[in-house]
Computed example of a mutant assay.
Amino acid sequence: MEISVNRLSPDKLKKRPADESKLGFGDIFSDHMFMMDYEAGKGWINPRIEPYGPLSIDPAAMAIHYGQQIFEGLKAYRGREDGVYLFRPRENFERMNRSALRLCMPEIPIEEAMAGMKSLVLLDREWIPRSPGTSLYIRPTMFATEPHLGVRPARSYLFYVIIGPVGAYYKEGLNPVKIYVEDRYVRAARGGTGEAKTAGNYAASLLAAEKAKEKGFTQVLWLDAAERKYVEEVGTMNMFFVIDDEVLTAPLDGSILPGVTRDSVLRIVRDWGLKVTERALAIDEVVAAAKSGRLKEAFGTGTAAVISPVGQITFKGEDHIVAGGKMGTLSQRLYDEIVGIQYGEREDRYGWLERID
């Protein structure tokens, strides 16, 4: 498919942020966006780059009423030799298609979608920040546009990509965060949509997250829906624990998101020769390890934060300090390795990095 480009005139371009230390996350967007439409019987049509702006949708659009909406998150980096780099982008689009299938939505043509995304990034490449720790966040999204009231899969959809410069996801940056173990509310259950990246999963997490923030915590650590016993994931991250000399994380059993950064961490630590186990891990086991000093580190992984060290875990009103409240050795080593690969500064032994300029 040929991509049409409606480029803004120079006098209508937005003013880019002057101080990259104040970027924050998710509030600033570039000048253009990539879009394409799906119609039953026609497939994907009309790939285009348009000026960034509001979307016009029917009040009866089925996404609004029945929740057919999925999205992804990845980044572009301004790295070595001023190049523009992407980190494992195909895995994000493959995961988006798995989310689409779970919600009875059409799969996107990956090659065309990636071509549109790359064209958009390169068109707005001046929005890619240059300061250490900054990047260009990329948000592919798809939702049902057919105007119809009645529960069934929609027959028309919009896929689009927006981009914008970002700094650290958490205000703490690389300083350890405090997480609250939620044992009342649940985010997702096996057999549900927990492994899909869909808006409803995040909506279901908001109440517990807000209550946790009121108590001074950065994030919620979710337990399994059936028994409220086994740790699953944090609201925006997969979770890892280092107990003795073993790196532990929850298995992909249908209720947690299969994170790209999670997979990257697993592959790296195994190559480093560390003992790695994906298994059900009870919160009581984590607490016991913390009390005995066997819990050496805990950290979250995700595109937004990469590696987020955990300095405190609170469960049933009891605080458990992890790694002395500081960033652990493995957390720091993983952060340095992954970020080094992403910016083209370290050897990419896995073929994860793609330079697009």
Rank of each mutant, 00 (worst) to 15 (best):
L74S: 05
L86D: 08
F87Q: 06
A40I: 12
R262V: 11
A280H: 15
F315S: 11
F93D: 08
A60H: 10
N97I: 06
N175D: 15
G351T: 10
E20M: 08
E232T: 15
P89V: 12
V247M: 05
E318Y: 01
A304E: 02
G324T: 06
G167R: 05
F34V: 09
L103I: 00
S331K: 00
N201P: 00
A212T: 06
A212E: 06
K14F: 15
G194A: 04
Y77S: 05
S255F: 04
E146C: 11
M237G: 01
G302V: 04
I162L: 07
P176T: 06
R190E: 14
F217Q: 04
I64E: 00
N97K: 06
R270L: 12
Q68D: 05
V177I: 15
K211F: 12
L136A: 08
V265R: 00
A199H: 03
G216C: 09
Y85T: 09
W127P: 04
F87L: 12
L136Q: 05
N97C: 11
Y160Q: 01
V121N: 04
F241A: 15
V265M: 11
E214D: 14
P176F: 07
A18Q: 15
G340V: 06
M237Q: 08
E337H: 14
G216D: 08
G79F: 10
M105C: 02
I356P: 01
E146D: 11
G216I: 05
D245W: 04
E285Q: 11
D245V: 05
P309A: 01
H32L: 13
I163P: 00
W352Q: 05
S21T: 15
K22H: 11
Y180E: 02
E107F: 00
K296T: 14
P165L: 08
I110F: 11
E72S: 04
G191M: 07
V186P: 00
Q312R: 14
